[in-house]
């Protein structure tokens, strides 16, 4: 009864199904304030822990190191630095993308953490670790308090 050479479950007796469920996530106390700043003011904010002297981006309600509640928020600006990046050639379903997409971890000066986002208005060969990038926001009427209110980051001029 060795089935070890079968890698496709369709080749053994199987039962097809899915795990249907729809989700709606609240952004939370810190998340709601963060995304409202993006939506309404086009600002990227960080939350500062006065005890550990750390600025968290994205902001959090609490400091994970000392458990202080974080009340003081600071504007970290819309210019960041590419900490690392990847060039995606396939989509989430494994299909080939017509145009490669660049995804980067973008850090902000003086802050801990950063944002994962797309790099646009350039080509993969021009992207370098350490390069400065600027957030490009959607027009304000299209913003919904979501990470996609930022269209992408583009190389700084």
């Amino acid at each position: 009864m060795s089935l070890d050479k079968i890698t496709n479950p369709m080749h053994v007796r199987h039962w097809l199904g899915d795990m249907e469920a729809d989700y709606i996530y609240t952004l939370g106390v810190a998340g709601e304030r963060f995304f409202k700043e993006i939506k309404e003011n086009g600002k990227i904010m960080g939350a500062k822990c006065p005890r550990c002297n750390i600025i968290y981006v994205p902001p959090r309600m609490y400091c994970e190191k000392c458990f202080a509640k974080l009340e003081g928020w600071v504007d970290v600006g819309t210019r960041g630095v590419v900490h690392t990046f990847t060039v995606a050639k396939i989509d989430v379903d494994g299909k080939k993308l017509q145009k490669p997409e660049i995804y980067a971890l973008i850090k902000f000066e003086g802050a801990c953490g950063g944002l994962i986002h797309k790099i646009g208005e350039t080509t993969p060969e021009k992207v370098k670790i350490g390069m400065k990038v600027d957030a490009v926001f959607k027009p304000s009427f299209e913003r919904k308090a979501s990470i996609n209110d930022i269209k992408h980051f583009k190389p700084a001029e």
Binding site: Y25, T26, L27, V29, M61, Y62, C66, F67
Partner: peptide
């Protein structure tokens, strides 16, 4: 409204405060 992380924090912090202890 709180995320699951934030709810976890509120309960944990309250328990620590009640015990007079820190993280």
């Amino acid at each position: 409204k709180e995320t699951g992380k934030e709810l976890s924090y509120e309960a944990s912090k309250m328990a620590l405060d009640a015990a007079g202890m820190e993280l």
